[in-house]
Structures are given as structure tokens and as C-alpha cells.
């Protein structure tokens, strides 16, 4: 990990950090409602939110921008929280739903639901399939992590899971009966919160909330794992309970997020690293700031894709990957000196 010259003592408290991030999140939520093809000043925004503005503005705010804003924040919060918990659980700075293949597996689950038409008949099957995909991937990873805790092995297995998920997703697209379905799956895979409705919000919200609650409940136990699992257990840690909470939380939050937004990469990797130096490197303290910050990061990215006016709007997942991949490479190169 980062060998900072002045480590844990130079930190702002977790509570002030969370308050600052909440302020940023609130500002971005407001901006997300204001910014778009039609500029809506904050005054009209409030009226529109309560249906008291002109019908066009009300529709834009209530039907288009509010679901988009809420979903961006939910997806980002899920990814940030899952990334922070996975990094602590596996004591692996490269762990996150994307690098470990969990996002890919969730996407595959969702594609299965779309491909077999389940999603059209039973809407709930989409998040359920995505969450199942995420859970299967997470369980495989934990089994591997128990036998060999090497950072490299884990990332390679994650890459493998991601590869299989992509292969099967490609297979579904390949066998797809019509080009419309292919393009629908492809666009969805790129990750976006564009053109979503409140029905998607209601679909994801309960699972994301329960998932985030599980991740937050897992957080306090993560610190003990810094000393290895044996030492942690010798201090009374119930390791299997912690793992169950972390898997359940990751699967619920990430699965539900992926189900409504497609795959938005690297948020779970970046967010914990951005907050870690600010909280004294303590794993448990990265979770809540990563949840709030992850929401802010995805919201900000979603605003940026709307502001970049180049032909068709950039997909959200494309932007986060463009930001995240160099970050990932930087981390790998930076860590190479310290990893066994």
C-alpha cells in the first residue's frame, strides 16, 4: 500500500470527512437536476419537483432527471461501499467488484434475464438474476481467497470470472435472434443511468439499502483482518459471519446496481483509495466515506457525460473506465515494489 511519509496521524476525522462528502453529494444532486439539454434554474427546480412548474419542466425533472440522479447516486454508493469492504476483507488494494469479476458476473445474470425474456414478464427477475450472478462470483472468490491469499492469484481468478462472464454474454449476443436485442444488450453493458424511470429506482432501492446496511455492518470487523485471519480470530472475530455479511452486501448492492445501470467500472477501486489516506488507512473507516463518495463520483461522471457534447452522449461506464483504467495501472505499478 501507499507508503506515505507521514501516515496515520495526519488525518481528518471520519465524521468531518463524511459531512464534507455529503455536502459535495448534495451539491452534485442539485447540479444533476439543473444541468442537461434544458437548463433549469434552481428556483424552478423546486417547483418542478413538487409538480408546480410548467408541465414540460415538471416532466423533465420528475420523469427524466430525478430517477437518473437517484440511480447514479445509488449505483456509485453501492460500488464505493463494496470496493471498500472487499479491499478490507481480502486485504487487497486491487480488490473491487469490477477487477474481481463480480460486476461482470452480475451483468451476465442480467443479460440472462434479458435474453430469455424473463425481465419483460417478471421485472423483479432482472435484479434477482444480477444479484445471483454477483453472489456466485463472490463465493468463488472467497473460496479461492481461503486457500491462497495471494493478491495476484485473486486478481487473476477475478479476471477469469470476468472473462467467462464476458464470453457467455457474447454468446448470448451472438445467438440473439435480432440485431435490436444485440444493440440493446451492448448499450446496456456499457453502463448508463440515462432514460431511467422511477420503476427502476423502486426495483433497485430496497436491495441497495439492505446491501449497504450489510456492508456497513461488516465494516467494524475489517480492521482486525489487517493482522491476518488467525490473529483476527484469536481476538474473537467471527470470520465466517463477516464473510457472509460482505458477500451478501456486495451481491445485493452491486447486483441491484448493475441490474439498473449496466456495468460502471472502477468506482469501487478508486473511491476507497481516495479516502484511505484521509482516515489513517484504517479499513473500517473507509467504508462510509466510500459509499458517500462513490455516489458523488458517479453523479459527477454522469453530469460530465451530459456536458461533453460530442455526437451521441458518452455512456457513463465508458467514462468511469477511461478514468479508472489509468488509476488501476498506476496502482499496480506502485504496488509492484511492495507485493510478494
Amino acid at each position: 500500500m501507499n507508503r506515505l511519509p507521514a501516515p496515520a496521524t495526519s488525518r481528518i476525522g471520519t465524521a468531518p470527512l463524511c459531512l464534507i462528502l455529503l455536502g459535495i453529494l448534495a451539491g452534485l444532486m442539485l447540479a444533476s437536476l439543473t444541468i442537461g439539454y434544458v437548463h433549469i434554474p434552481p428556483g424552478r427546480l423546486v417547483q418542478a419537483a413538487f409538480g408546480m412548474a410548467d408541465p414540460a419542466t415538471t416532466t423533465i425533472v420528475q420523469q427524466l432527471r430525478m430517477p437518473r440522479m437517484i440511480l447514479a447516486a445509488l449505483v456509485g454508493a453501492s460500488l464505493g461501499g463494496a470496493g471498500a469492504v472487499l479491499q478490507g476483507l481480502l486485504h487487497n488494494p486491487l480488490a473491487e467488484p469490477g477487477t474481481l469479476g463480480i460486476t461482470g458476473a452480475a451483468s451476465l445474470g442480467a443479460v440472462v434475464a434479458l435474453y430469455f425474456g424473463l425481465a419483460a414478464t417478471v421485472p423483479m427477475s432482472l435484479p434477482l438474476c444480477a444479484m445471483s450472478g454477483a453472489a456466485i462470483a463472490t463465493v468463488i472468490l472467497l473460496v479461492v481467497a481461503r486457500d491462497s491469499a495471494s493478491t495476484l492469484t485473486l486478481i487473476l481468478v477475478g479476471t477469469g470470472i470476468g472473462g467467462i462472464a464476458i464470453a457467455l454474454t457474447s454468446l448470448a449476443m451472438n445467438l440473439s435472434p435480432n440485431p435490436w436485442a444485440v444493440s440493446e444488450i451492448a448499450m446496456w453493458l456499457l453502463g448508463s443511468v440515462k432514460d431511467r424511470t422511477f420503476s427502476e429506482v423502486w426495483l433497485a432501492l430496497p436491495f441497495v439499502i439492505v446491501g449497504l446496511a450489510a456492508l456497513l455492518a461488516a465494516a467494524p470487523s475489517l480492521d482486525l483482518l489487517s493482522l491476518g485471519e488467525d490473529t483476527a480470530r484469536s481476538m474473537g472475530l467471527n470470520a465466517s459471519r463477516l464473510r457472509t455479511m460482505a458477500i451478501a452486501g456486495t451481491s445485493l448492492a452491486v447486483g441491484a446496481g448493475v441490474a439498473v445501470s449496466g456495468s460502471v467500472g472502477f468506482v469501487g477501486l478508486m473511491m476507497p483509495h481516495l479516502v484511505r489516506p484521509l482516515v489513517g488507512q484504517v479499513p473500517s473507516r473507509t467504508v462510509l466515506p466510500s459509499i458517500i463518495g462513490g455516489g458523488a463520483l458517479v453523479l459527477a461522471s454522469d453530469i460530465v457525460v451530459r456536458l461533453i457534447a460530442i455526437g451521441p452522449e458518452l455512456q457513463l461506464g465508458v467514462l468511469t473506465s477511461l478514468l479508472g483504467t489509468p488509476f488501476f495501472l498506476y496502482l499496480v505499478l506502485h504496488l509492484r515494489r511492495q507485493l510478494p
Binding site: 500500500m1 486485504h91 493482522l227 484469536s234 481476538m235 474473537g236 484504517v282 479499513p283
Partner: peptide, 27 residues
């Protein structure tokens, strides 16, 4: 009742020494 000092000296994150020792109070 029983404290355990494991083999090896791995600490997975760059924690401060005092924070590391404080983990011993977990029980």
C-alpha cells in the same frame, strides 16, 4: 483469556503503530 501472537509479521495496511496495538483491545 488467551492472546495469540502469530508467526510472521504481516500487517496488510500502513497503519500507525498505536492503531495496530489498539486492535488488541478488540475482545
Amino acid at each position: 483469556k488467551i492472546a495469540y501472537l502469530s508467526q510472521g509479521d504481516t500487517v496488510h495496511w500502513p497503519l500507525a503503530v498505536r492503531a495496530t496495538v489498539t486492535l488488541g483491545r478488540a475482545p
